[in-house]
Simulated scan of single mutants.
Amino acid sequence: MFGAIRSRLARLSAPIAAPPEPPASPFPVPVPGPLAADAVLQARSAAFGAACRSHVAAFDQALAGLVAAGSLRPDQQDYARDHRLRFAEALYAIETLLAPEPGWPRCQVLEIGSSITPMLFHAAFPELRLTAACLFRHKQLDGIVERAVQMDLEKLDLRSATALPLPDPPLRDLDMVMLCEVLEHLLVNPANLFRALAGTLRPGGLLYVTTPNFLRQGCRGLILAGRNPQPLFRPEFRPEDRFHHHVREYTMAELLEAMQAAGLVLELAQYSACWDSAEAAATLPADALRNLVVVGRKPRDPAAGA
């Protein structure tokens, strides 16, 4: 009996092992599998991310031309300046990704959720053949786009379609589809949407997607504090205000998985600092930046995507 007591006391007096060292980051985000396993994709994405601000001057010139021509309302000018880095990034993407194509500079580009962006694209690349798809027709785009399509993505059946089910003439053989800051406003499955958009591309065509990074630095702090980073639908909103609300934000891994599920080959994937201050961009880890850019390419041999 006394031996058992002595044994228990010895165990209680034994030194307590030191706790394990905490991880370097309080909210570690592993590199998504499709990106981690592809060194070429990593290198291509890093090169794109490092240079995407190089077209700020091109954006400034395009905007100055539109302002001088009286093409933009004051609120649209403010909007353009607020989105300056994002628009510069899009201009860089258009030129970098499409310039090697045989059709450049008369490539066919579909921009979804269009506002003033086709005007900026046209000012920077006058020969670009633009199609705008949005909820409402914008008269400002007359003479800027070859075709304007009214489209509500949430009202389309995207479950099994291989292309967007739109009236004739159908959208086909496009060089690029741009879905910029739209996905987070939609109640859709991203893989279904990407598959439908891919159906409008020619073999080798590109789907360019940008959307907020759900795991950005600010969201991480809220999660650790036990808060949901996604804001509630505002009490003063009506159903028609839904496009001012983020239905769902995504992580890099989710976007890459959706691209692959849609049969697209990953062209590049980068964490973008287009919404971050210069200080944040210089000090934060890449996966804590505020935006995501993912590009998928439709297989040049259609059979390869089966």
Rank of each mutant, 00 (worst) to 15 (best):
N189L: 11
L72C: 06
E240A: 11
Q42L: 08
H185Q: 06
L35C: 07
I223V: 15
A281W: 02
A304V: 07
S7A: 15
L97Y: 07
R220L: 12
E146A: 11
R216V: 09
L207R: 08
F2W: 08
L289E: 08
H138K: 09
V265C: 12
E257A: 13
P239C: 03
S7R: 15
D82V: 08
V31E: 15
E21K: 15
P235E: 11
V265H: 15
G143F: 01
L266H: 12
K139S: 14
E95D: 14
F237G: 01
A282R: 09
A286C: 08
D82W: 13
P28R: 06
Q270I: 13
E146C: 03
L222M: 14
F59V: 01
E111S: 07
R290S: 15
L97P: 09
G65T: 04
P118W: 01
L206T: 09
Q42V: 03
P229W: 06
F125S: 12
A196D: 04
G103W: 08
P285Y: 02
T117N: 05
I94K: 02
E111R: 03
T131K: 08
H244V: 11
P167R: 02
G70P: 00
L193G: 01
A148E: 08
T117Q: 11
I5A: 13
T283C: 11
A68P: 01
A18C: 06
L9W: 07
L66M: 01
G204K: 05
G103L: 05
